[in-house]
Amino acid sequence: MPTDIFRPGDDEFAPYYAGYIDQAARTMAARGLSHVVQLLEAQRTECETLLGTVPEERAAYRYAPGKWTLAESLVHVIDTERVFAYRLLRIARGDSTPLPGFEQDDWVPASRAGQRTLASIARELGAVRTATLELVKSLDAEALAQRGVASGKGVSARALVWMMAGHLAHHLTLTREQYLSS
């Protein structure tokens, strides 16, 4: 495992992703974590614990009209982590081919999340995060410093690690505050 995956500089990611980078940093600080890999690991356990307590009928809950269901939101998290991990793999391996974006709002209906159980979604989320962790832990400083293009914007491998941690931190907060609080 790399000794440290430093917070990426502002030139390592598109401005849109600054919120995820900041969310990862805030979450790490609040938990007293010094390494983003610690956050990635803690989130896997946190998801398992949190989702293990949610009744199955809650999967179809929308906290407001037009918002995704809980199941859709969680499958979106899985899809996004897979896309970010694929980008991480390609960029860390020195592949300079520009990588396409994806339209999350088009992917959600196609995910058929409403036909799945929360237990199935939770298992998949854990499996995807486990795979992500193994990839991240395999990367050295040189691989993490690699840069590429995704969605038409420059991004470093290091930034993608932080973006994954921040994206899940954002959705865990959303899940607690919007989907499970009422």
Rank of each mutant, 00 (worst) to 15 (best):
V161N: 13
A157H: 13
W162P: 01
G154F: 14
A150H: 14
L180I: 10
W162F: 06
W162S: 08
M164F: 03
G166Q: 09
A165L: 05
M164H: 07
R147M: 09
L168D: 13
S151F: 10
S156F: 14
A157V: 07
A150T: 10
R147T: 15
S151T: 14
R158K: 08
Q178C: 02
R176C: 05
S156A: 14
G166W: 00
M163N: 11
R147Y: 05
V149D: 13
V155T: 15
Q146M: 08
R147K: 11
L180R: 08
M164K: 08
A157E: 08
E177V: 15
L160Y: 09
G148A: 10
R147S: 15
L168V: 10
Q178E: 03
L180G: 04
S151A: 15
T173W: 04
A157T: 14
A169L: 00
W162A: 05
G148Y: 14
A165K: 04
M164V: 12
L172H: 04
T173I: 06
A165W: 03
A165F: 03
M163V: 08
V161F: 13
H170R: 11
M164N: 14
R176S: 07
R176D: 04
M164Q: 11
G148N: 11
G166L: 00
A150M: 07
G154Q: 11
Q178K: 11
R176T: 03
H171G: 00
L174T: 13
L174V: 15
H171I: 00
A165V: 01
A165C: 04
E177C: 03
G148I: 14
A157G: 08
H171Y: 05
Y179M: 05
L168M: 12
L160A: 08
H171E: 04
